[in-house]
Each structure stands twice: as C-alpha cells, then as structure tokens.
Nucleic acid binder design. Structure first.
Length: 872
RNA sequence: GCCGGGAUGGCGGAAUCGGUAGACGCAGCGGAUUCAAAAUCCGCCGCUGGUAACAGUGUGGGGGUUCGAGUCCCCCUCCCGGCACCA
C-alpha cells in the first residue's frame, strides 16, 4: 500500500475502473427495487460552478448510498441547452449559439466525470437536439388540437430602439439593458398552455406529496392562489348602448363601500375616454412605460387619473367614477377592479392621494373605525360584520357574500366564482435559440399545426443573432413553407418555446432517451416517478409547478401512469461568497473575484495592485457580482474527494453554503489522516473484523465465530461504532443531513485514534471500525473509499455495514441533574432503573443535598434516560 | 408590495420529539518534533469576574407559556430566495 495519499492517482484509477466495468449503468431489467435519483440538469453556461458541485454531490451521495443498500439505481445527466445566455454570448463574440453550447457541454461533461459522479452516461441528452425537441413539438400539436394550447394577446417588454422583446432580466430600472431606451409594454399574440384547467388538481395534489418540503408546498399553494369570490358588473350606457364593466372581488361583503372603480390603461373604457381627453391619453401612454414584472408593478408609485366616466353601482344605483390606475393589470382577471378605500390598503392609499371618498361598511364590535388606524382593519379584524350597508347590516363575511351574490345573480349582474391567482402559461418567445413552435400560418386555413410526419421542425444551427429581433425572421429557407392543409404558400411560426417547456419533461425521457418511435415508451413507467429529485430552492415554484403540470398532460395522453413526477424533493440552498468591488466616479461598479482579493492588515486589497477594494457583502455566486469560485482549481489542487467532502460538510443541504478556502484545507486534512490510519493498520497485517452477526469471511481466518474476550475500551469503541452506523444511515437516508453524518465518522475516527493496544482482539476491533468507517464514507468520498477498502478487504465489494444490536447495550447510564431548571451535576444509574429509583438516586446525590439544605423538594421531574429536575 | 425562508462563539455549523447550548471542523493561542520552516502530533479555546474551585451571563430585539425554551405562542428588526421572458 502506498504510504502517501495521492488523490489524483487514486481518483484516475477509480474512475477508469468504474468506466471499464460500466459500474453505474442502470439496468432496465433488474430484480432489485429501482431507485431513480435525479438532480436538476445544468444550463451549459461554460463551466461548472459551486452550485452544480453541491447539487450533484448531494444526488451522488444518495445514489451511491442506495446502490450500497441493494437498489437498482438510475442517476442520469443531461443539458438544459436552449436559453438566453447562448444568444448573449453570440452577440458578444459572434459565435453561433449552437457551437458555443456544444463546446460548453463537452467541457462541463469532462468536469462532471472528474468529480466521480455515479452517472449513467448512456442516457445523456441535450434539449437542443432534434431527437429530443421533436417530441415536445409532437406533444404541442396534440395539445393544440385538444385546445389545451391556445392563442391570445399578451403584454411583453418592448425595446423601441433594438426593436426587440426583452426578458424581465434585460430590463434595468425601466430601460433596455443594451440600448438604454425606456422600455414599453406591448401586446403581441402568443401561445398559452391552459394550466388553469389543472389548477385544482395541481393544488390538491400537493397533499399527496409527503416527501416534499412544507415550504415548497406552501409556496406553490399560494402561487395557485385559489379564492372564492364574486364576479359582477357595473352597468353603464355609452352611445345609446347598454354595456357592463365587469370586476372580480374576494371581498363582496364590502361592495356597499365602493366609491370608485379602477381600470387598466389598456382597458377599452380607458381607450375610449382618452379619445377626447389629451391629458388622459398622455397618462395612459405613461402607464404603458416600464417593465411588466410583477415586482416592479407592485413597488412602483400608485398613480391614477379620472376618466370622467361613471358606471352604476349594481345594488345602490349610485354613480361611481371610473379611474385609470397604473397598478391595474389588463392580464389579471377582468382588467378592472372595484375600490373600497375603507377596507383595502391599496385602495385606501389611492383614495387618500386623490381625495376620493372613504366609506366604512365593516365594523368590529367595541372598536371605533378611524382612518388613522386603518391598518388595524385588515386580517382577522377585517372580517367583522356589515355596517352602513342597508339590508346587509349585521351579516358576517360568509353570510354577506352569500346574500350579495344572490342579489346580484337575481339581477343578472353577477355570480359566485372560483378564481385562481395562477394564470395560463404563455410559452411564445421571440428568440432564436429555442425549440421552434410547430405551427404554420396560412392565409386560408389559419394556424395549422405541423403534421407528425413532418416533425421535427429543425432549428438551423448556423445562425448568429445580433440582438435586434428574432433572426429566424430573416431566414427565408426557414420561414417559407407550404400549408399542410391546402398546399398554398404559407409562413412558419418563428417564435420558439419558453425553455421551461424542455425542462418540464426531461426526467421522463431519461427512461428511454434512445426511443425514436414516440415521446416515451414502456420504460418510463418502469422508472417513474422519480424517487428523489434534488435542485435549488429558486425553482420551488415555476419549474417544479410546470413539471407537475406536464406530468399530468403526459398522463392524460396515456404516456405515463402516475399523477406526480417527483416523490421526494430536496431543495438545496445556494452557494454564496463575499463580493468585492470598486466604484467609478460615474457610479459604475467593477466587481472583483474573491480569488483575486486578499486581506492585508485586515483590509481587503486586490492582489494585482495592492489597492483596497470595497467589501460588498455575501451573496449568491453569480456572474454579475463576479464572486463565483471555480471548482476546477479546487479539484486540481486537492482532488474531487476533498471538494465533495467539503461541500457536504460545510452546511446542511437545505441551507445556503458560505464558501471558505480554509474549510477545504480541513476536509483534505481529514482524508490524509484517514489514509494514514488505514496505512498504519494495514502495515501490521489485515485481520478478520471483530465477530458480529455476519462475520465477513477473510482468507486464512476461516469461519471464526468464537466470541473473543474484549476489554472495556474496545467495548466502548464498538458501542460508539455501531451507534455511528445507526446514525449515519439515518442521517443520509431519512434526514439528508450529510454534515452531521460526516461529523459522526470524524468523532469515531478520533475515538479510534485513542484506542491503545496491539493484541488480536483490539486489532480486530480496529479492523471492524476501519472497514465500517471507510464504507460509511464511500458515498461521499468514493475514490479514496474504493482504494482503502481494497487494502482492508482485498477483492471484496464495498458493502454498507450492519448494526450489531448487542454492541449497543449499556449497563449504566448518566443522567443530568437540574435544580430549578439549572444544571447542577450528574448521577449514574442502572440503565433499567425506574422513575422511583432515579428520583431516590437524585435526591441522595451530593448536588441535591447542597441545594435542598435539608428541606423537602417542592416537585421532582424525572425524564428517564435524560434528566432529573428538582424544584426547591 | 406580496409569498416563502433565515438569524446560535472570531468563522462554518451541532443540539433529530420542549430536556447538558456550542458536537464536528476552521481560525487563534500554548507546547512537542525540527538546525529552521512546512507538515504532523498533544493541549487550551462563548463572554464577564476569579490563581482556581466556582459563580454569573449567553442562541437578532421585546414580551409570554412551562419545572425547564435555541426549539412553542405574540410583536418587532435585519438578511436572503421567488414574483410568471434568467435558468
């Protein structure tokens, strides 16, 4: 055995050996129970970042652990290959997005292999390949024919200078990121998935996901946002015609307090009023500026303008003024809202600002309504009883809503309605590097889906976008085609799909990536649902909701048999690091990578020039803040095992992980010590492990089943060993707390180092401990574990150690002794002692005597196995 | 703004069901080894007072429940994630 721990050597050897025997190839035909372990696939941005290392190490630990426990494990990997960054790189460097993407994939695949992940590479896929997106296009045409996909107008961010639709990310302070032009809202036609049709099932299905974190389920439930309310109309007459302004409210009980209505800038009523009102027209134009992002809408200053029009209150008959409000969105509900300033925070602010009347219609007994205390009237208190509401006075929330809905229905002016906050999913993107939408526009036949036999609609890969518009529009060979129905000249749709579509079903395609006869084959149901899904918490809502939705779409197409795609979900925290920057005179910040910064006399300075930089706080590793730590340098210096050990040890998986170079050093030190401990033991000759229920046969020792006499120190170590086996299995399998699993093995190794003696029994206990410790670490640091186990048990395959129950038995245990809840000492009692015996022992103890001063205790609390608390 | 999460030594974190706060690791300090250094090994290490034994105090802030609260309840502050075209 090599005396020195040489990571690069043993890692290369282990990886070559795994590849040679195809160790991680998942069998489609196995007797063993399946375990499908999936990590969210990466966007091929260039090179792996620490978030990837963390994500895939978590998945690999679980995959390897389950393989050691006898499961038929599948851990696949692929590439979320379409997306905006490829186009940005194209604009910056003049490289086609395809070439850039595939080069990145090659580099990142090599990095993943260097980390030693137990991935079945035979199932690798990239979403930008026609063999993949072909089936996405096929499903699109099926759903289009079923009406699950439809077309409607939707609002986008429009850059008037670049003549391009911008992603929210590309809008900075209301301006286009490249042009700096003020962004405008613009309505364009888009294709939508009718996800709202599945809203109820997506909501109720959360109850069948006990393996998901509560917080993710809560976020999804709030996102779907089911609410029962009332949709009703304010009638009005215009140009001699009777018309209606429809609104939706969850607070119909406050309908008698309506003092105005507010409509979106794009609302037909606003458009009409603006025709002979230049000031209003100007205001509407102003409203149309800025981004469409909800966060921007919600935080901007609430502004409005009177249209001069009024509508009739459906119950009181009063005239109600109609305002245009910049906070009312055309795409939400009806594009119009009723306003009750007394009982809605936003309406209140608006009314205060523009001097609109405020009318209290809800009261809480014993409390006086006052404008100063208006905030008090939200939450539970808002659900008081009706006042100043005529016939509805005295009714509570539910009764008032029922009565008001009934009266509106009787007049044909409204009805109860279940409303979801969830909106249909718009998937059209005016971008090149995505999956083409398989639609052909024919002047005669309209929107015609591309027939299955003509799929895939292949995206040309030699295009270089320039940042203005979609380059596909300039490709006559792509655009011009014949209508599949009538054969006349037609135009191909040039919008591509939202990349969330590709990531909504890739998990299913891994079961049968080579199948070219359809989207999925029978192997999908063999492997699905995914047993464990791992990915960042930032995907808690959108990606995970879309994937659940897609699973139900595929189920309803008869492609999968299950209702939900992911049985267990682990949402890992972010990897964060310090940020450093310098600010120029014009306020522009230049960010420096932590690797280029060092501390000199407590001041952060740039290594290159020694001048100070400003410390900008600890944030998610990102390109924009230039605080990403390149895992490659770490692997080169310490090896993959150290990188894996550190990322698993530094924080529990669900919390954010703060990067630290010093911690890496500690992880490496532990592996060196482990290597040395095994080396020293092996130098003395390997022996059979201490007898336990399944004595492992070792050449020369035979079936040595005679129990050997064992001293107290070795017995104590064996107790700790088997407690550790119990704990580590529980930490990995149930708790998914790898940091404490590692800490427990470290403690065990520290205890082993203190075990003296070179007799046969002690050596066999040492052998047992080392075998188990190496096996327990194998899922986390597989290369070194492989090498060490081969020295400890030549020829044997790594196996998870079994717990020896008999080693756990204790005769005497220590309890803590509290007086008035404060720790004052310990007592030793027999492990089997009952409450009375424990109490007697406690009262007889020196510490108890000291604090009781001869007086009887007021109360004694005995928690067997834990403590005694004496109240004096 | 709305929804979700977090805050524990100098640092990362542990305390799994309300029961020894600070496991494990990093940094630091002291010692051994060495010509010297690196590496390695041993010891100390929340704060305040004390030579020490020990005492007091301590889990973002304020209040509450309990024999007992980092953990449960109410209020507050700050930080982070998501907000539908970043992935």
């Amino acid at each position: 055995m090599q005396e020195k721990y040489l990571p690069s050597e043993i890692e290369r050897a282990a990886q070559a050996q795994w590849a040679a025997r195809q160790a991680y190839r998942a069998s489609d035909a196995s007797e063993r129970p399946k375990y499908y372990c999936l990590s969210m696939f990466p966007y091929p941005s260039g090179k792996l970042h620490m978030g990837h290392v963390r994500n895939y190490t978590i998945g690999d630990v679980l995959a390897r652990y389950h393989a050691m426990r006898g499961f038929n494990v599948m851990q696949p990997m692929g590439w979320d290959a379409f997306g905006l960054p490829a186009e940005n790189a194209a604009i910056a460097n003049g490289v086609p997005p395809a070439a850039w993407t595939y080069a990145n994939i090659d580099h990142m695949r090599a990095q993943l292999k260097a980390l030693g992940f137990a991935i079945d590479w035979s199932r690798e896929l990239a979403t930008s390949k026609p063999g993949y997106y072909r089936w996405e296009q096929w499903l699109f045409t099926r759903l289009f024919e079923k009406g699950v996909i439809y077309k409607k107008m939707a609002t986008v961010n429009w850059d008037p200078v670049d003549a391009t639709v911008l992603a929210n990310e590309q809008v900075i302070d209301g301006r286009g990121w490249r042009s700096g032009a003020l962004v405008e809202k613009r309505d364009i036609p888009m294709y939508f998935f009718r996800i709202t049709q599945y809203a109820d099932e997506l909501l109720s299905g959360l109850d069948n996901l006990p393996g998901w974190p509560e917080r993710v389920k809560t976020m999804q439930a709030n996102w779907i946002g089911k609410s029962v309310g009332v949709r009703f109309a304010f009638p009005y007459t215009r140009d001699g015609k009777d018309e209606q302004l429809w609104v939706f409210t969850t607070r119909a009980d406050t309908i008698m307090g309506v003092t105005f209505c507010a409509v979106a800038a794009e609302h037909p009523l606003a458009t009409r009023a603006a025709q002979d009102n230049p000031a209003l027209a100007a205001f509407i134009n102003e409203c149309k500026q800025g981004s469409v992002a909800e966060a921007d809408m919600a935080t901007m200053e609430k502004k409005g303008m009177d249209t001069g029009l009024t509508v009739t209150h459906p119950l009181t008959g009063e005239q109600v003024p109609v305002w245009v409000g910049n906070y009312v969105l055309m795409s939400y509900g009806e594009g119009a809202v009723m306003a009750v300033p007394a009982h809605d925070e936003r309406d209140f602010g608006f009314a205060q600002k523009y001097g609109l009347p405020i009318k209290q219609v809800i009261g809480v007994e014993g409390e006086t309504f006052s404008l100063d205390a208006w905030q008090e009237w939200y939450g539970d208190k808002a659900r008081g009883r009706c006042v100043n509401s005529g016939k509805y006075d005295g009714l509570d929330y539910a009764a008032a809503v029922d009565a008001i809905a009934a009266d509106l229905a009787a007049k044909g002016m409204g009805e109860k309605k279940t409303q979801f906050r969830l909106r249909d999913w718009g998937i059209s993107r005016q971008r090149y590097w995505g999956c083409p939408i398989p639609i052909i526009h024919c002047d005669r036949c309209g929107d015609v889906p591309v027939p299955a036999e003509h799929l895939p609609v292949v995206l040309p890969e030699d295009v270089v976008p320039d940042g203005s518009g979609n380059p596909l529009n300039k490709r006559a060979d792509f655009v011009n085609c014949a209508c599949p129905q009538c054969g006349s000249a037609a135009r191909r749709e040039t919008d591509t799909m939202d990349t969330f579509v590709e990531s909504s079903w890739y998990y299913a395609r891994y079961a049968c990536p080579d199948f070219d006869g359809g989207m999925l084959d029978a192997r999908a149901n063999q492997w699905l649902p995914v047993d464990q899904y791992i990915g960042g918490i930032e995907h808690a809502i959108l990606h995970l909701l879309y994937a659940r939705f897609f699973h139900k779409l595929m189920r309803d197409e008869g492609l999968v048999a299950s209702d939900e795609p992911f049985v267990n979900l682990l949402t890992q925290g972010m990897v964060i690091a310090d940020t450093y920057y310098r600010e120029a005179a014009d306020g522009k910040k230049t960010w420096f990578n932590p690797a280029d910064v060092e501390l000199r006399d407590g001041v952060a300075v740039l290594k290159s020039d020694g001048q100070p930089v400003t410390v900008g706080g600890t944030e998610k590793m990102s390109k924009s803040k230039n605080n990403g730590v390149d895992p490659q340098a770490l692997i080169d210096q310490y090896g993959a095992d150290t990188a894996r050990l550190f990322t698993m040890f530094a924080a529990p998986p669900e919390q954010s992980l703060e990067w630290s170079d010093a911690g890496v050093e500690g992880a490496h030190r532990f592996l060196k010590r482990l290597w040395k401990t095994v080396y020293e033991h092996v130098q003395g000759g390997v022996v059979a492990a201490f007898p336990h229920p399944n004595p492992p046969p070792l050449a020369g020792e035979g079936a040595n089943a005679e129990p050997k006499p064992i001293n107290d120190a070795a017995k104590a170590l064996r107790r700790q060993l088997h407690q550790t086996i119990q704990k580590v299995g529980d930490d990995i399998e149930r708790r998914k707390q790898f940091n404490t699993a590692i800490a427990a093995v470290m403690e065990l190794m520290n205890a082993l180092a203190r075990l003296d003696g070179d007799d046969d029994v002690t050596r066999s206990v040492r052998q047992e401990t080392l075998e188990a410790a190496v096996a327990m670490l194998a899922p986390i640091v597989p290369h070194i574990a492989e090498a060490l186990y081969a020295e400890l048990r030549p020829g044997a395959a790594l196996a998870w150690p079994a717990v020896d129950e008999s080693a756990l038995v204790q005769d005497e245990i220590e309890l803590m002794l509290q007086v008035n809840g404060k720790l004052r000492g310990q007592i030793r009692v027999a492990a089997a002692a009952d409450k009375a015996a424990i109490e007697a022992a406690a009262l007889a103890s020196e510490a108890a005597q000291k604090y009781l001063e001869g007086k009887p205790p007021k109360k004694v609390v005995v928690v067997p196995g834990r403590l005694v608390n004496i109240v004096v």
